[in-house]
């Protein structure tokens, strides 16, 4: 995958996340578009892209917060790497496996971030398990939509061009 396209994809996700966060977040329940982008890129391009995109996206996301820079980066790097490994080792072309990968990726990232904050005594408020699961559902659904759009848009464009 082209690095510029990868970075652009991450940047779009980050912009959308920062601009649409107030609409996507309800209390502690929210959708992490940046994570969705990282998992998507990892499933599409493999673990290396997952690592790079996860690292860059996480660091950028951390940089925009007042928290410790690197925690989100490490969490998204792990998720990107694991998702890339899964995408390379298995055929993840159906909605259910993709859903599971997004779901597991969200759980893993939340676990890493929560665990690191606990280890570092960084004062992160305890996120209820229900909120984590709800975010995992939201991310998974958004991820499926992204996959559908990414798969469907080129075909729709071809059809549109053929009709003209």
């Amino acid at each position: 995958m082209n690095v510029v396209r990868m970075l652009a994809f991450v940047a779009v996700a980050l912009v959308l996340q920062t601009t649409l966060a107030r609409f996507l977040v309800r209390g502690s329940i929210g959708v992490d578009l940046v994570l969705v982008a990282v998992v998507y890129l990892s499933l599409r391009a493999g673990p290396t892209v997952g690592i790079v995109s996860g690292s860059v996206a996480g660091l950028a996301q951390d940089a925009l917060t007042t928290g410790i820079v690197g925690i989100g980066g490490l969490g998204k790097t792990i998720v990107g790497y694991l998702a890339g490994v899964v995408g390379s080792a298995f055929i993840v072309a159906q909605p259910l496996p993709r859903f599971l990968v997004f779901f597991a990726g969200t759980i893993i990232e939340m676990t890493v971030i929560t665990g690191l904050h606990a280890v570092l005594d960084a004062g992160l408020p305890v996120v209820p398990v229900g909120a984590i699961v709800a975010q995992a559902f939201g991310n998974s659904l958004v991820g499926l939509v992204v996959f559908q759009l990414a798969d469907g848009l080129p075909r729709a464009a071809e059809r549109w061009r053929a009709r003209r």
């Binding site: 995958m1 690095v3 493999g46 673990p47 290396t48 892209v49 997952g50 690592i51 790079v52 690292s55 996480g58 660091l59 410790i68 820079v69 690197g70 925690i71 980066g73 490490l74 790097t77 792990i78 790497y81 890339g84 490994v85 690191l116 570092l120």
Partner: peptide
Amino acid sequence: LPDIRQRSGYLFLVVAVGHIILI
């Protein structure tokens, strides 16, 4: 991307350690 993609495990370790150092 460079050929480092062939050794994503090493890259992962390097990046992870880098993040830990950063943290």
